[in-house]
Design a protein around this nucleic acid. Structure first.
Lengths: 196, 196
DNA sequence: CCTATTGACATACCGATGGTATGCCAATAG
DNA sequence: CTATTGGCATACCATCGGTATGTCAATAGG
């Protein structure tokens, strides 16, 4: 019988998505080093042939998963920030959104813990910059241009804040009381305010 | 002939120190996943039997190396802080010492990049707390008690500052201009000042 | 339509890796 | 002087990431 057009591309896309989904689940649960390719392809109901057809290897698969996670976090941050017009409120709500989003277990493990170690810090930084850190840099630049923040080099400040929030997210995910989030936020707010 | 007393313990200690030294060198250069036990024992001029006699496995060996690195950093921080009496100056000089010490390649790779991924964040946190973060917590507590810092929960602030400095150290190790260190320090100083 | 080609996998296999079980010999204990 | 144990070395194993090859259906070209 006549094959329906697009069968090829649809199947390819489906397999790739299943692999990404299962890999993300397993990486989030056991960590990068704690799960083997055999387990990933088994849970995806495919074989290693399929995996190596879609990805260059285990690090590349992890990178794809990481990019997906980062994209989600960045989307949440941008969405929260875009709800406001005032540059200062855009920054603060964006930071809060990042804090809450990054506390999720898979984000925490994949993006904050394994990411730098697996891909190397510079690669991880580049991906983070392309995803969510870019928003932070833009927000800070806008605030300096608007005269809200004192003129100063943006990069160091952005890294300090980014690192502070990453560590805070890791801590919050473990200490997990809602009161802790408010304490972190209070201190972070004062930090932001200090640069005003 | 009569064996000199203490031969046993001396040989044991010597083998252990060689293993730690070579493992630290290799972990720092290639990362935890980038070096195998075969290479470590070969460079140490022993066999895997010796390694597994002294350590429980590869993660345990890494943990021992990490503790050594952390102890050195903590010592540098404490030494710098102890040169001052004023609590505020103790904090600032301690932070500066941490920044410069953590920029060293082996510290950066072992303590800041691989540490959390290999041992898990909570384990890493516990070790860090026992080593250098304890000084930060103490300094902040003293400042609150002295009325220099506003009364507030210490833990969130300590984590924010620790994360900020860790990330800054990673960045400084790469951007490596001495001017960048001053920029980071200026922004960090304002952050500290903000909590005053 | 029919055929050639290619794309999306599956299968089989490889070297290297972390880890273990056992053997051996000299240093210590009695 | 003998028994024991500590400090390794040797030999071996299961599993890992990675590769080479085979297979079959979907597409492209005539």
């Amino acid at each position: 019988m006549a094959p329906e057009p697009g069968t090829r591309a649809r199947q390819r896309e489906r397999t790739r998505r299943v692999l990404l989904r299962e890999a993300r689940r397993l990486f989030a649960e056991h960590g990068y080093g704690g799960v083997g390719l055999a387990r990933i392809v088994a849970d995806s109901a495919v074989t290693k042939g399929a995996l190596y057809h879609h990805f260059e290897g285990k690090p590349d698969l992890f990178r794809a998963v990481l990019e997906e996670v980062q994209a989600e976090v960045a989307d949440a941050v941008a969405r929260a920030a875009d709800a406001h017009q005032d540059p200062w409120e855009r920054l603060t709500t964006g930071c809060r959104a990042f804090l809450t989003a990054s506390t999720a277990p898979d984000v925490r493990r994949i993006m904050l813990m394994d990411g730098p170690a697996v891909l190397g810090w510079s690669t991880w930084r580049a991906l983070d910059e392309a995803a969510s850190a870019r928003h932070l840099t833009e927000a800070l630049t806008d605030l300096v241009r608007a005269g809200v923040l004192r003129p100063q080099p943006i990069a160091p400040l952005a890294h300090l804040l980014s690192g502070a929030m990453n560590e805070a997210a890791l801590w919050l995910a473990e200490a997990d009381g809602p009161a802790d989030l408010e304490d972190v936020w209070a201190a972070l707010s004062r930090m932001l305010e200090s640069q005003r």
